[in-house]
Design a protein around this nucleic acid. Structure first.
Lengths: 198, 198
DNA sequence: CGGTCTCTTGACGGAGTTCAAAGCTAGTGG
DNA sequence: CCACTAGCTTTGAACTCCGTCAAGAGACCG
């Protein structure tokens, strides 16, 4: 059965590669749709990440806990984006990251077994994967630059560009955790920014 | 002709995938060896990165200049590692990074045309690429964590783990640029670390 | 030798943290 | 529909890490 969620993910993929009808059907057949309520976990630290996820709607945070016990957010997974703990998924290692729903969220997931099968059966899918990780690599490089050489205020601007509208949907302490500053400092920073404008 | 440099890169690849004799020969036939003297550039900002490089020996720095005019080093390319400005190479965009030799260096390079050809002709090569960018992605994620949540001293430890012995080969201001601190602060930090031990 | 590059040292300033307290919001249950 | 609580946000003071500027000490070329 082809649900609306499956339609979305397939049309997302078709933006990047071409699939025959048979290939698209094969792909659709291995997708599983899953709902996660706000505050529920999609993956916990130490679990093995056995699925690759595509977010249909809602929003997840991907985090880890640093040595001081502080939650750091490395990415928000919003609608139309992929999310996986790659190291755990590929190498069957305990997950370093955890993923938790910030809003009620719907995802499509693909098991590792099916993921490998798709790579074998569909050459274009291999190509899609390649593109995905190359682009992911480029995006991460950009984030490293920013965290190395931009002050919090500019990182905040980048956040707003990268996730338009997300600021209105989530508590601001999560933005602080994404930027790598304390909620207290983030609050100050916003106030100062406003004062500069008016 | 199969030179020593070509041997090295091929045996590097064979650690990860299997190639037939014909495939290995095809691969070897498109490699070009190139020498870069210390302080020479392999790529300048704004150029198009037309090759994918494998470093046989020596060392390069991969850098950009931030808005304040400071050189930031995002990676050292030492012997047995790959280096390319991915965004420039894939999308034919002006390079954001530059690459300069820190020591006399020998590389093997593959043009974009041949790179694409290898992907078409050798399925295993596609797989190798995939692996490369997935691992690159995992490594970058780790570096983001570090720059977000570790003080300079711990980032310094990671540097020493990641590039064993490199510290002795390069000026310490380059390490500071890699860690994202000023040479002055780095000098202080090292002194303090020594004082703590003794 | 002399000049450039690199490393060290010190005084000072600013960005961001920590801790603590108080004010706000938004659920939640009665 | 109100009251209560838990979590979020703001504010402020003291503190830390790290940057800037400046000056001197080595070190490595030509």
């Amino acid at each position: 059965m082809i649900t609306m969620e499956k339609e979305t993910i397939i049309s997302h993929i078709l933006k990047h590669i071409t699939l025959s009808k048979a290939e698209a059907d094969l792909f659709a057949s291995v997708l599983e749709t899953k709902h996660i309520a706000r505050k529920e976990y999609l993956l916990r630290i130490g679990d093995i990440c056995r699925y690759d996820y595509f977010v249909n709607n809602g929003c997840l945070k991907v985090c880890y806990i640093d040595e001081k016990g502080v939650e750091c957010i490395i990415k928000f997974a919003i609608e139309d984006s992929w999310v996986v703990d790659l190291d755990s998924f590929l190498n069957l290692r305990p997950a370093f990251y955890y993923m938790q729903a910030i809003e009620d969220t719907t995802v499509c997931r693909i098991s590792k077994l099916n993921h490998d099968m798709l790579h074998e059966q569909i050459p274009a899918f291999q190509k899609f994967s390649n593109m995905r990780w190359q682009n992911g690599f480029i995006a991460l490089q950009r984030r490293i630059q920013q965290s190395l050489s931009m002050p919090a205020e500019e990182r905040y601007s980048s956040f707003k560009e990268k996730y338009p509208g997300l600021e209105q949907r989530i508590p601001q302490k999560l933005i602080a955790a994404y930027l790598g500053v304390t909620p207290e400092f983030f609050s100050l920073m916003k106030k100062k920014a406003l004062a500069t404008i008016s």
